[in-house]
Amino acid sequence: MKWKAVSILSLVLIIPLVVMWLVQGRNIYTKDKVQVSTKVKDEIFGGESEKIEWVEKFQLGLLPGVDEPSPKVLLSVSVPSGILVAIAIFGLWKDKRSKL
């Protein structure tokens, strides 16, 4: 019963990750910067002049935003979800074994 609860909890924990991914723009890769455009009326040339800055803002992606092995690989949907699915499968297997 204990292992079954662990499995269910693991699968439930994936849901907020997916919701966060959907809300933050369904990015393929996790991003740590976002483009901010500022448009100002241009008195000399007419129309608007645009300035773009990159500001620090975390956006969860399906895949990690880094290549090299580091704790940052956990900042994604796929890696923690994969770990949680593995825990869930292990829990179900343990639960089945304990019933035998």
Binding site: Y29, K31, D32, K33, V34, Q35, W54, G65, V66, D67
Partner: peptide, 8 residues
């Protein structure tokens, strides 16, 4: 050139 993701 910058796309907001260092890896990319």
């Amino acid at each position: 050139m910058n796309t907001g993701l260092n890896k990319r």
